[in-house]
Design a protein around this nucleic acid. Sequence first.
DNA 1: CACTCCCGCCAATTA
DNA 2: TAATTGGCGGGAGTG
Length: 890
Amino acid sequence: ENIFDRPRMAPKTPIKNEPIDLSKQKGCTPERNPITPVKVIDRPQPDPWTPTANLKMLVSAASPDMRDREKKKELFRPIENSEQSDTPDSLQYDIVDDSMVDEFEKQRPSRKQKSLGLLCQKFLARYPNYPLSTEKTTISLDEVASILGVERRRIYDIVNVLESLHLVSRVAKNQYCWHGRHNLSQTLKMLQEAGELQYGELMTSQHKEQDLEDKFGEQKKETIPDSQDRPLLEFSEPDCTSASANSRKDKSLRIMSQKFVMLFLVSKTKIVTLDIAAKILIEETQDTVDHSKFKTKVRRLYDIANVLTSLGLIKKVHVTEERGRKPAFKWIGPVEFPGKTDELRGHSPTSDPLPGTQRGACAQYKTSATGKQRFTRHASFNRAQPCEAARRKVNSEPNSPRQERQDENCSKMINLAAVCRQKIEEDTGNKACDTETILNPSKNSNTTLPFSLLPVPGDSDFCVNPLPQAVFPVVQADVPSFSLPFGITSQASHPSTPAASKTENGKPTLVPNQPFLCFPSSSLFMLCGGLQENNLSESLPTSGDVGHRSAEAQAAVPPAGSQKRSSHKCSSPSAPVDDEEPAAKKQTLEQSDLPLSLVVPKKPSESPKAEPSPGSGCSSAVHLEMNCLDLASPAAADAANKESTKPLDCQEQEKQNKDTDEPSPGNEHISKENANQPFQPQYLYVQPTAGLSSFNFLFSANQAPRAISLAANQLPSLSVPCVMVPSAALASFPLVCSPSFTSPLSPVPDGSFSAAASTSFSMSSLASTTPVFISTTAVVTPKVSPAPSLDPQQPAHPALHLSPVLTRSCSAVKLDSPVCMGHPVTLLKLQQPSSAPLTPKSIRPAHHEAFFKTPGSLGDPVAWKKNEGNQTRNASSVQRRLEISSTSPD
DNA sequence: CACTCCCGCCAATTA
DNA sequence: TAATTGGCGGGAGTG
């Protein structure tokens, strides 16, 4: 809307909003400026000051001015309104009926028009969900405020929440960097983990009965008044370094936002009532339970909820309890995050492929394990290192205030994550086992994990280890031979493919299709999505799809969806996806899920391929998400979407569009937008397994427009979009990256999109690579000479886990594929979604950073950070999964 | 009247 | 010290 308006506005009066805008605009944004005048003009001048204002504005577009204008605005408003105005918003641009319009519209933009939610949508509309890695979009608060016609204060409300989810990071003073949803799954995953630690208990109990409140209250106070809370808090903050510091921080909207999200992620029902949330969030605890405090908290929660709603992560619902109906919000975002992210860990310092510089860039990302990464605002670059340290330790010391805090938080997060991981590891023994979670994960995987790979069989170690530290490593492990199931791919594709593709949202298609390759030892992975993906598809069996969907439904509501899921699950092992819980339903996830499920089925098929040997092979499931990457192709996406699935994350927004395919899901889901992205092809992800160090990924991402195109061209020959190569491998192989790329590559991958880079990669890689890769599909592979390398059968290694999540996924896998179970099957899943891509993170960051900061600061930290970034990106991209179970091919 | 939540004062932080 | 951030809560719009 805004966009549209703008144009018009410019000329005229644009803006709906208020004069303010105009004024601002004038000053600020040149863009519009052109006309800006209008308002002024129009308005009668409102004021004397106008002139002045103008001057000021002109003089400085700067923020200060902005403010003034705000004040002025106020003045103006009346004027404007009276004048013409316009309708503010959208109403109509046309003022055709001036009279009518003016009167009505102008008057009031109505409160709704000014709502934070709407504002947030406008804000989000300005940036792509999955920006190319290469681009780093910077957001100028003043500019945005002026463009959107609101005071800066409001922008802070939005940005703070977005920052809590890592969709943006603060770069400098009035500047934020837009990251998009690439990292969203990771972030969510982290939050979920953290939330489980902190709130797990509560939620569980609470959920059961919805009355969380009551119980809640009780529990909280009794049991843990603090304990529970605290964790989080701490989480967020390190030690508390200073109480003082805390004070503000703690309350911070950011933290509240994270906690709020955690509640959803932890909640089985995925529904959280405001009052409960408020109670929980009032850390203070019991003491002050003041009513006023509660009230304030609720206000803030509304603010947060509005933003989250705009992001498509939650939706407003009402819970009717005995007492009556209460306002509540339901999580409709992705539920599972498979991949989790180990990203952080993954990167080991040394290994990082990334160059220091890049890292610096990455710094923003800081990756912490999960999401923490926040970047610190400005300096983050530097911080990268610290982060790492922090993550290890948990608390980082605060260096600078904010950053520190963030860092701290991160660190806490990290710590938590670490803990989780450890647990996982421990569990690992089971490795595969982990089941439950896993299951979910699987579904989720899309979302979350971009890549989760699970190694199944043999790799337990891998899996495990990886997590803890570097996630990636796993991969490295050895996968001796990697097996790729090319065949699989193909197989998969056949059958369902078509259907699948469509069915789902498309997104999957890719995934399934994708060929994935693993190299055993060397560890290479490739993922391909084909452009074609659709076709290819391997689609998994449809059923899978179904499952997904159902899953979605389930997630949200057990009832409807669940069945399906379960069934699916049951039915097909592969389906792992489903998790039970799904509560997850998160749409996004769900969406993802769907795809997954699709995938899943395939998996089986795949598996055969994959499967390498148990031990040896890696089985991993990788999920890739592809984000749509691009949004660019929305259209496509849309089209695709419908069915396709996938894209999920990215698309959540889109989701809506889509509709849900499924019935059940339908409910809410609609949102799924997933779809779209599907087309996108693939993503390349490189997982770093070893935290990068070990692997390099290459993605081709089709997705990106560019990429795609390229990919297409080039790829065609190849089917594979992505390839992963272990670092070692790289070394060995020339192809990997061109030298130059190498390092970059890794990063790139995620970025995949990043267009250029990735592209290049692909290309280059392709060319060179040949040796290396793998394509999944036969077709694809053509070039693949490498195939040989592949060894399909060889076991792949699973191992890529990145994050704990991964682990889960792994487990899930197991579950899923019972089939597999016996065998050492390996599964590969790729999730595109955000999560997976751990590796990627690094990549992205790099990009970003590079652009921005880069300066020296980059240093090491950067590298890993980059990784994170990359991952993120990856995640965002559409997810796709491939699963392969070695064993069960068909 | 209850639910939402906009608005913007003003303090904490930063630069 | 000035500017940027952002907590906070009054109170208005909605239903």
